[in-house]
Amino acid sequence: MDSVVSFAGWMPAGLQNAAETGTSVRAVIFEDDIAIWRGQDGLARAWQNRCPHRGMRLSYGIVRENRLTCLYHGWTYDGTGGCAHIPAHPDLVPPKSIRAKAYGCVETGGMIWVARSESSEPPPQISGTWMPCRTMQVNRSLTGLAEVLGTGKANLALAMGAWAGQLRVAGLQGAVLLAVQPMGARGAMLHACVTGPEDLTRASDWIESLRGHLERPIAA
């Protein structure tokens, strides 16, 4: 049923610190398996999580400078996804047709946002300074932020599409930016950012209890 929900616009794919400089990590959005990696230039990129050569997940890749090297055979891709080097044939200039499939990827509000390359929707722009707090996997498939708010002790201050919004949470000094990343049969990820370090621990406790509510069996 969830697969009917299309991956049309920009979706949250993780907190900014999930992909540290020089690393590659895995993200799942609906059924899409995505590698997110950050070069030394500080830019995050999101690609389909398979090397065009033999299908190896690029989230296992090695980041050097601003290039990603597949762990399996060392095929190396530049920051735009073009294959730059095939170690088994050091003198070969790789054909232009060998490319990792890129997603749109922007960072705003302390989070990484991803869109399919064919999406024409403008990327999100979230004002203010947001600090990554917690990401939590929830064992329940979610259809949007609204479903989360129905159960948490929080008020929506500013909606940002179906999957994210700014909340006022009792006991916190600033607001919380909460985003839902649906993962099909794997449930969902909840990502939370806060406005300052004083709220980190309490926001973390709040999102833990929110998850507890969401995972509680629904009475028939």
């Binding site: 999580n49 190896m56 997940r57 044939h89 047709s97």
Partner: peptide, 16 residues
């Protein structure tokens, strides 16, 4: 490796 089954259509995985 994705997919888990072996693609045998040469258009799918690019060999050298």
């Amino acid at each position: 490796q994705v997919p888990r089954k072996l693609p045998i259509d040469p258009r799918w995985e690019m060999p050298t």
